[in-house]
Every structure is written in C-alpha cells, then in structure tokens.
Nucleic acid binder design. Structure first.
Length: 253
DNA sequence: ATGGCCACCGAGGGTGGA
C-alpha cells in the first residue's frame, strides 16, 4: 500500500499536476492540504475519472484538506472533535484496515504571535484527539503538512526564521511521537539534505534551500511494514508547481 | 535595498503562506 501526502497550494491550479501524478505514481491513498476551495467547487468528477474516490473538508481561500483513495473511505471524521475551529485542517478516514488522517498544521507566522499561540493550541488538541484515534485504530498514518522541521538536518542552514523550527514546535512534534508514532522517513536510511518544501523566491528549489516539513507518521503496528519513504521532487520541477513536493510511504501488505 | 514568489479576492493592492 502506497500512501502519499501533498500540500498542493490550490487544488484548482494544481489539478493537472495532481491528475498526471495520480496516473504515474498510482498511490493507494493521497492526503491533500491547502485545497483553497469550497466543497461545492471540489473537482470530484475529474478525480473520479482518474480512478479515485475522495472525501474532503474544504473552505474558501484558505486551508482545506482531502483524502483520495482507490478503495472506499469509511468512518469519515472532519475537524478535531471538541476543538472549536473555523479553519478546515483535518479529515480522517479508514481505508482498508488503515486509519488515514490528512492534517494541515497551522503555519504560525512568527514565534510569539497570535497565530503561533493558535498553532501550539491546535497541536495540543490534535495530540489529545490522536490518543483516542490510536486506541480505536492500531494501524494509523498521520500524514500532512506539519509546518515543523523536526531536526536541524531537516533544515537548510540558511533558514534564519525561528518559525517552523522553534523549540516549542519541535516539542509538540515530539509529543506526537511520544504517542507511539514514528516518522516513516527516519525509519530508513536516507540521503542528506532531503526537503519537502522550497520557497518560490531566491531560486530556492534549484539551490535546494528547503525544509522537510511534510511528514508521514505511522503507528507502531505499521512500523515493521514500512518498506520505503521518499520525497518525489518531480512535480516541483514542473511549470507553475506547488511549493511543496509529495512525500510517499510504501507499506508492505 | 531586510525584498525577491505565488495564490487568493476582486478590480488594486492587501493578506497569507513557510
């Protein structure tokens, strides 16, 4: 089973890239973030024509998440239960025997800002909810744009901002790992300087000035089955790309 | 020179992203 996460930065703009990529990579499930479209504008017909079902939680202009899958998605949950939030950042569904969550973590803008406080509150609520999800679903993948680079090796050294790498953000990421989740990417040998996001400016992609902020966390029951985890840089090289590249994990049957 | 790009909304520049 191949599961992917991809912040598409506008589903409308990136739909041609997404459809081509679904055809070439044929993932079993894809978690999307930053749809930036309302549910009524979701391009369901095009995605179904590509051989995928879709569940989604969209909003106008900002945020928005979806899960595409070849098999039917059941037990769909939108948003974090008990956490009042206008922003559409979570959708969860069961595909086969795996619980899949597509998460778009708050960016936070700047350390100490109101948005930063919201980021930490949101992550705390996510972590509380994940305890219940893990208890109910031993096989679970928490996939998404975390807006956190977990370690220094996940950051190009020229990154000067505190946001995305601050100690409280990294502690929140560790809090998710402490639930019994593992960063699939770090379960395996990896090359150095692998990133999942590159700024549109400064020729950052060409220079590989990036951050690894898109992650696939897997529950303990899945750890022995993780065969491969990688970033697919190909879509980032296309004309008018998302600033994020998709990240994939291969899970043995 | 403390920006540079991209997408959004909406009709032009402000906001947000990371």
């Amino acid at each position: 089973m191949k599961i992917a996460t991809w912040n598409v930065n506008s589903l409308k703009v990136r739909l041609p890239h997404l459809l081509d990529w679904l055809h070439s990579e044929a993932p079993d499930a894809v978690c999307l973030q930053e749809l930036k479209c309302e549910d009524k504008a979701f391009p369901l017909a095009e995605i179904e024509a590509a051989g995928y079902r879709a569940v989604f939680n969209g909003q106008k202009t900002y945020n928005g998440v979806a899960i595409l899958s070849k098999l039917e998605a059941t037990g769909v949950q939108r948003d974090i239960p008990g956490f009042a939030d206008e922003q559409k950042r979570i959708i969860a569904a069961t595909i086969g025997d795996v619980r899949v969550i597509s998460a778009y973590v708050v960016n936070g803008q700047a350390v100490g800002s109101e948005k930063y406080a919201y980021k930490l509150e949101w992550l705390a609520a996510l972590t509380r909810w994940l305890q219940d999800e893990l208890a109910a679903h031993p096989k679970l993948v928490l996939a998404g744009d975390y807006n956190i680079a977990p370690e220094d090796r996940d950051v190009h050294p020229d990154w000067q901002d505190e946001i995305l790498v601050s100690a409280p953000e990294r502690a929140a990421f560790q809090g998710l790992l402490d639930l019994g989740l593992s960063d699939a990417f770090r379960l395996l040998e990896q090359p150095e300087k692998i990133f999942s996001w590159w700024d549109y400016r400064m020729m950052a992609f060409r220079r590989n000035y990036g951050l690894r902020i898109d992650h696939l966390l897997v529950s303990q029951a899945l750890v022995p089955s993780v065969a491969r985890c990688w970033v697919d840089k190909a879509p980032r090289k296309l004309e008018r790309p998302s600033d994020h590249a998709p990240v994939l994990v291969e899970i043995k049957a």
